[in-house]
Amino acid sequence: MGKMRVLLSGYYGKGNGGDEALLATLLQMLPPDVTPVVLSGNPEETHRRYGVESYNRMALLQVIKALRSCDGFIWGGGSLIQDVTSTISPFYYGGLMAIAQVMGLKTIAWGQGIGPLLRPQTRWLARQNFAGCVKVSVRDRNSSALLSDWNIPHILAPDPVWALESKPVAELADLPKPRIAVTLRNHPQLTETRLTNLTRALVDLQTATQAYILILPFQKSEDLEIAEKIQLQLTDKSQILCLEDPQLLKGAFRGVNMVIGMRLHSLIMAASEGCRCFALSYDPKINRLMEDLSIPGWDLANIPDDVNSISKTWLDFYQNGESLSFEKIQSLVNGAFLHRELLQEALK
Rank of each mutant, 00 (worst) to 15 (best):
R5A: 09
V6P: 04
L8C: 12
L8Q: 06
K14P: 01
G15Y: 10
G18T: 04
D19Q: 11
D19P: 12
E20N: 11
E20W: 10
T25I: 07
L27R: 02
Q28R: 06
M29G: 10
L30S: 07
L30D: 03
T35F: 12
S40M: 08
T46R: 08
H47F: 14
R49E: 14
Q62T: 05
I64S: 03
K65I: 00
L67T: 02
L67K: 00
S69A: 13
S69V: 01
S69L: 10
D71G: 05
I74F: 11
G76R: 02
S79K: 09
S79N: 13
Q82T: 02
T85Y: 04
T87G: 14
Y92K: 11
L96T: 01
M97W: 12
V102N: 04
M103Y: 05
G113H: 01
P116G: 01
R119V: 13
T122N: 12
R123S: 07
L125K: 09
A126C: 13
A126M: 04
A126H: 08
N129R: 00
N129L: 09
F130T: 03
G132P: 04
C133L: 04
K135C: 04
V138Y: 06
S144P: 11
I152W: 08
P158D: 00
V161M: 09
L164P: 07
P168D: 11
A170T: 15
T183G: 14
N186M: 12
H187M: 03
P188L: 12
Q189K: 14
L198D: 06
R200S: 14
A201P: 07
L205T: 00
T207K: 15
T209H: 10
F218I: 01
E222Q: 15
E222T: 10
E222K: 14
E222Y: 08
L232R: 15
T235V: 05
I240Q: 10
I240A: 09
C242I: 11
P246K: 01
Q247P: 05
Q247R: 14
R254H: 13
N257T: 09
I260W: 06
I260T: 04
I260V: 13
M262H: 02
L264T: 00
G274K: 05
C275D: 02
C275T: 14
R276M: 02
C277S: 09
A279P: 02
K285M: 07
K285S: 07
I286K: 05
N287L: 11
R288I: 00
M290D: 04
D292Y: 05
A301L: 14
N302D: 15
S309A: 15
K312P: 03
D316A: 09
Q319F: 03
G321W: 02
S325R: 03
F326I: 00
K328V: 02
N334H: 13
A336W: 06
L338K: 15
H339K: 08
R340W: 08
R340K: 15
R340P: 10
L342Y: 06
Q344Y: 14
A346H: 12
L347Y: 03
